[in-house]
Design a protein around this nucleic acid. Structure first.
Lengths: 182, 182
DNA sequence: CTTCGTCTACCAAACGTTAGGTAGATTGCC
DNA sequence: GGCAATCTACCTAACGTTTGGTAGACGAAG
């Protein structure tokens, strides 16, 4: 599943094959199919694992009373920054969004849930930070959460294309300045 | 080329095949290869045409003395809005960015040029609007241009995934409010 | 003795690409 | 004007490879 996820993030779901994974893991193709009977099954499993990982990490930092909403937001950025070790990895679901119409209903649903959950998490964090006076925001919290998520996903794609790590850092810094109380 | 572009925007470059195009156009597969000897050739041609279309349209509105920077920015949004007629089309280069590592050097360069040019165009418009007092901006025009482009590309992807046209409208409205002078 | 993970050996379908050829329009030359 | 060479767009047929997926055998472990 690690190999599958990496292949999706770097080359895309359509371009990923059982054979590619087999070579990376060191076993033969049918052995992989034994565990994931279809490509869709493998895709679903990878997305579900990815989603759960984010969920537990984000909920954890959100419920920690010692963490400010700023900490939560910075923590939200870090996994995206960490993708930078390879430099050519984007968010798993960002990659899948690019070939969304090719995914089949079940996987489409899973990607959709990922983004909807993320949008709502961001909105909650923003609202909590606003209520506590940490963030400066107008009333349209939901729209701003959408913009933030969009910008982050777009920045990851553009970072890979332009080969400029600053692409992501600039976007993050811009967001920080936009919500920092004057 | 119209069919090829539509297929890339909806299903992705890897998933697009000569056969698909052949069926849409009504001729046979090798006849298409007669015009575009390789899949890469076809891809390059489609990107170049797309890039030129944007370039001429954007430069035109930029140089029109009767148009304010606001008009230019709104005009910049419209082609992205027009993709909405199908509802499941994203920016051509946004789709290609998702499978960037699978594209081969020549196509990678073409996609890269597209985004770099766009980023610079946006920066010029923002700076002109700022100088003329139409926009409210801090000094980091380049970073904001990057954020704007990222948000736009991300919003197009998310719109298709969430099946919510408001996804794009919300992002556009947020951007307008951010740079509108108080 | 059954279950599990892996294997070899296949399959049909689709892929990008090549080869060889046909019909019709265009062009240069007498 | 007539004629041959060339070009263009398309065709059928097949190439070798890769795809997702299947069937059945093997050894190890409980």
């Amino acid at each position: 599943m690690d190999s599958a996820q990496e292949l999706i993030q770097t080359r895309g779901f359509s371009a990923m094959s059982f054979q590619d994974i087999a070579v990376m893991v060191g076993i033969k193709k049918p052995s992989i199919i034994h565990h994931f009977p279809s490509k869709t099954d493998l895709g679903r499993a990878v997305i579900a694992r990815y989603h759960d990982l984010f969920k537990s990490a984000l909920v954890h930092v959100q419920e920690d009373p010692e963490k400010t909403p700023w900490d939560a937001l910075e923590f939200y950025f870090t996994p995206y920054l960490d993708f930078g070790d390879a430099g050519n990895k984007v968010c798993l679901c960002g990659a899948l969004a690019g070939e969304f119409m090719e995914l089949g209903e079940t996987m489409q649903h899973e990607v959709q849930s990922f983004f909807i959950w993320h949008e709502q998490w961001l909105e909650r964090i923003l609202e909590a930070g606003h209520a506590a006076g940490h963030f400066k925001l107008n009333k349209h919290t939901s729209q701003f959460a959408r913009t933030l998520l969009s910008a982050l996903q777009g920045a990851l794609l553009l970072k890979r294309v332009t080969r400029d790590p600053k692409q992501l850092e600039d976007v993050m810094q811009t967001i920080r300045e936009l919500i920092a109380p004057s």
